[in-house]
């Protein structure tokens, strides 16, 4: 395999994630988001993860970032390496200004206060927020939030960058700029795991692609191959009747 010479940065071994959640009344639903998934992320590569909405892509990144612990299996990260998740929007505190949010995000990722303060100028410039940078984030449009989120994460330096759909929002001009900045990072020795449902972006940015369906790995390999297979499947043409992965998560033990 072409990766045999490279170091493993992150490894998922037979990882499953199950959680209970409240339904109406006293009923509980059990959600199996991931089911015995094993994969490796190698140093310096860009791994793409594709699949329909709700198949567990984001959860997989959250497991990689150490936000959740797997119900079964293990997540192993190379010692001393940091992984950070880059997602949009929801992490912000609406009542705080863009500046405070950026500062807080950088400090929570481990930057010292002086480091975090030094990023702010760059963040303000790159995000093109202008005076809005000092306004509460709750007054931002979705596109403005996306710009702030992307820029904040881009400026903080981590060993493994986990990107969740982040390049799919914002206006065309900013998206082009964000993609260019992203490519620059990828061309360097940055290790990236990239989640998207935009095939063109994945083909453009990723060396290797994993296709997730129903909480399991459906296919894994070179970007063009896996994307082709994925498209044949979701595109409809020669897909088997009824064989759709549109069911978001499998629900076990749920009462009808």
């Amino acid at each position: 395999m072409s990766h045999s010479g490279r170091q493993v940065m992150l490894e998922l071994q037979e990882v499953s994630l199950v959680y209970r959640s409240k339904r109406s009344g006293f009923e509980h639903g059990q959600h199996k988001v991931l089911d015995a998934v094993s994969l490796r992320v190698y140093e310096g590569e860009t791994l793409g993860i594709i699949g329909r909405n709700g198949v567990g892509k984001t959860t997989m990144l959250q497991l990689m970032a150490g936000i959740f612990a797997p119900t079964r299996g293990r997540v192993r990260q190379r010692p001393g390496k940091s992984a950070s998740l880059l997602t949009l929007g929801l992490g912000f505190r609406g009542e705080l200004s863009g500046r405070d949010n950026a500062l807080l995000a950088a400090m929570l990722q481990g930057s010292s206060k002086s480091q975090a303060l030094s990023y702010l100028f760059e963040i303000k410039n790159f995000s093109e927020l202008g005076d809005s940078f000092e306004e509460p984030v709750k007054t931002y449009s979705a596109g403005m939030r996306a710009r702030l989120g992307f820029t904040t994460a881009l400026m903080t330096h981590v060993d493994i960058l986990l990107i969740d759909e982040v390049l799919s929002v914002g206006d065309a001009q900013f998206r082009a700029k964000a993609e260019a900045a992203m490519k620059e990072r990828i061309r360097g020795e940055q290790t990236v795991v990239f989640v998207s449902h935009m095939a063109a972006q994945v083909r453009d940015l990723c060396d290797r692609v994993i296709w997730i369906a129903d909480g399991r790995i459906r296919a894994e390999g070179e970007a063009g191959e896996v994307l082709g297979e994925y498209h044949r499947f979701v595109g409809g043409g020669d897909a088997k009747p009824g064989a759709t992965d549109a069911i978001p998560t499998r629900r076990l033990g749920q009462k009808q």
């Binding site: 959250q62 936000i67 929007g89 992490g91 995000a105």
Partner: peptide, 11 residues
Amino acid sequence: ASRGLIGKINV
């Protein structure tokens, strides 16, 4: 109340 942040960063 901070679950938005908690879902993004392991703090």
